[in-house]
Design a protein around this nucleic acid. Structure first.
Length: 386
DNA sequence: GACTCGTGGAA
DNA sequence: TTTCCAAGAGT
């Protein structure tokens, strides 16, 4: 065995994170689900979602047959929602095309939606004991530092080099090795402030020998984050229900329930609209624009009552600035629309698949309603119409 | 190749 | 406060 692999396996046996939930099983479904949830997502974020998901949908069959809304509700807050949609499609393929068994070759596994080379390799190594190398962010960082690779990690040529390096180093016990290199990347060879003194590879690490541990991998060129501005409608009907719309299946927050949007610049879905930077100051122009957009789309007689303070939500490639606009419904009915619109009781809404900012808004609203119930003895002040 | 796709933690 | 980036894959 190559010394690097031997050192890693020895270190892993003594210091690895053997207690992670997905390391208590060799079941392909559970291993695959963990790999999907862990894509671009840190371990601590995944843990609560993983247990809940498996409790409700414990096998391929259950996931394949579940309503997509239920899958998205279980994913709500975890982000990258295409993973949830692809996961269900993959489960359906496993059931229909593979007789309920995860494919046992790399090429077949990669054809599943949401399963790339690294994910397929991880599942096949752990579920079936096959020898396949992974190349995730942890493994990539460890290889780049140990071999002092100062080329751009995102360049195709570097990717090829890293994959062949990963394959060459991976020993027969790929199951243990894959987890070992991930744990080293997560616990010792961290992105910032690597703990080189505790590293089992310190003796052969070229970056350390060259005093460049902190400088590798080379930083990516940062692109300026554009802003998008939008108002979300918090409309309540006479029963206190709130209006939600189901977003299109593709794009930001695809398939999730969301407060209706509007932007002064118009557009069906401003959140999806690049360069949608509009002023959000509380002006009569803004209020008229919002009323016009929502009147046209929703066919409701709305009375705007309040604009909340501006909030922000950061995405990977842009920053969202938004304000919540409170409104009472005086009349009209939700229009027939290509986009499903539905009135939800607040508690029921929180059980749906919601993006995190929507969940926060609705939770705050429910909390406010609870506290106002306590003080209901005091007559509610008349709401100012704006 | 260059974009697109979420969210939370750490510094 | 802002910045960075994670157990990547799809288009």
């Amino acid at each position: 065995m190559i010394p690097l692999a031997e050192m890693l396996l020895d270190w892993y046996a003594r210091h690895g994170r053997h207690d992670l939930p997905w390391r208590q099983t060799r079941d392909s479904y559970r291993l695959w689900l963990a790999e999907i949830m862990l894509q671009q997502t840190q371990v601590d974020s995944v843990k609560p979602y993983y247990g809940r998901f498996l409790e409700v949908l414990p096998n391929w069959q259950a996931l394949a047959e579940a309503p997509l809304d239920q899958v998205l509700a279980l994913w709500s807050g975890l982000g990258y929602y295409a993973r949830a949609r692809n996961a269900q499609r993959a489960a359906q393929e496993v059931v229909t095309r593979h007789a309920g068994h995860f494919p046992d070759t790399l090429d077949a596994a990669i054809t599943l939606p949401g399963v790339g080379r690294s994910t397929a390799a991880a599942v096949l190594a752990s579920a079936f004991g096959q020898k396949h190398a992974i190349l995730d962010a942890n493994a990539r960082r460890v290889l780049i530092r140990s071999h002092a690779i100062d080329a751009d990690p995102r360049a195709t040529a570097t990717q090829h080099r890293l994959w062949s390096l990963a394959s060459a180093l991976t020993p027969h016990d790929a199951h243990s090795y894959n987890q070992a290199i991930q744990d080293l990347g997560a616990m010792i060879c961290t992105p910032r402030q690597p703990r080189c003194r505790a590293c089992p590879l310190a003796g052969l690490c070229m970056a350390r020998a060259q005093g460049r541990s902190h400088d590798l991998p080379v930083a990516r060129v940062k692109a300026a984050k554009p802003e998008r501005c939008v108002c979300f409608l918090l409309a309540r009907d006479a029963d206190g229900r709130v209006l939600l719309e189901k977003r299109p299946e593709t794009g930001i927050w695809g398939g999730l329930w969301c407060l209706p949007e509007a932007a002064p610049g118009g557009g069906e879905h401003p959140v999806l609209c690049p360069d949608a930077a509009y002023p959000l100051q509380d002006t009569s122009v803004l209020r008229q624009s919002l009323r016009a957009v929502w009147a046209r789309r929703l066919a409701l007689h709305l009375e705007l009552t309040m604009l909340e303070e501006e909030q922000r939500h950061a995405f990977t490639h842009f920053q969202l600035r938004f304000r919540c606009v409170h409104a009472r419904v005086l009349g009209g009915a939700v229009a027939d629309s290509a986009v499903p619109l539905r009135w939800h009781d607040p508690a029921e809404a929180l059980a749906q698949g919601l993006p995190t900012p929507m969940r926060r808004i609705l939770e705050r609203m429910v909390k406010a309603a609870d506290s106002s119930r306590v003080t209901r003895l005091i007559p509610r002040r008349r709401v100012r119409v704006i």
